[in-house]
């Protein structure tokens, strides 16, 4: 086991432990913080893989965006510091079952389709992960370009933005 593997296991243990704490904690704010740590751990895993752009995007979107949004909604809605009621026994059993089945399915798929496995030869395959390559790919119109999904998502976001503005806009008194 080399240093890289040690880092991987530490990161994975961190992600799993904080993820478990996030679902078992009785305090809603702590849950959000554990989720934050879990997502940061995933970003760390991306850094470990050398995928720095994805790692940074993970931090920007999930940690800086979504978790902050979650925390804000907790601030605005929840009673401070009160414990959540513990869930129904039935619900606990079912969610544990669902998690187990999902894990089993993932394992099954991974073992069935060995093409997902990392072969020794794959270690030499280093895709061009520089940010300009990603940018070119994202806007390229050639065969493997992503310009169409990019534009579709842009329009979706634009629609969402306009919707937000329309909802938030106060109508002036007098023009009903």
């Amino acid at each position: 086991m080399n240093a890289s593997a040690v880092v991987f296991y530490i990161l994975s243990a961190f992600i799993l432990a904080t993820g478990l704490l996030a679902v078992t904690s009785r305090k809603i704010f702590r849950t959000a913080i554990w989720l934050l740590f879990s997502l940061t751990g995933v970003a760390g895993l991306y850094f470990w893989l050398g995928m720095q752009f994805i790692a940074a995007v993970q931090v920007v979107v999930y940690v800086g965006g979504i978790v902050v949004l979650i925390i804000f909604s907790i601030f605005l809605t929840q009673q401070s510091g009160k414990d959540l009621p513990s869930p129904l026994r039935r619900r606990t059993v079912f969610s544990a079952l669902a998690a187990c089945i999902g894990f089993a399915l993932t394992c099954l798929l991974l073992s069935r389709y060995s093409s997902f496995r990392v072969k020794e030869s794959d270690y030499d395959f280093a895709p061009d992960m520089s940010i300009s390559a990603i940018g070119n790919q994202l806007l390229s119109t050639s065969e493997h370009g992503y310009v169409l999904p990019f534009e579709v998502i842009s329009i979706l976001l634009l629609a969402a933005m306009i919707g937000c503005i329309v909802i938030a806009m106060k109508s002036k008194p007098g023009d009903k």
Binding site: A56, V60, G64, G65, V68, I131
Partner: peptide, 19 residues
């Protein structure tokens, strides 16, 4: 590689500590 993007990404974490 991602220099300034890294900076703006990580600096968005500082709000979490304050919250």
């Amino acid at each position: 590689n991602i220099g300034v993007l890294y900076i703006s990404a990580v600096s968005s974490l500082s709000v979490i500590g304050i919250l």
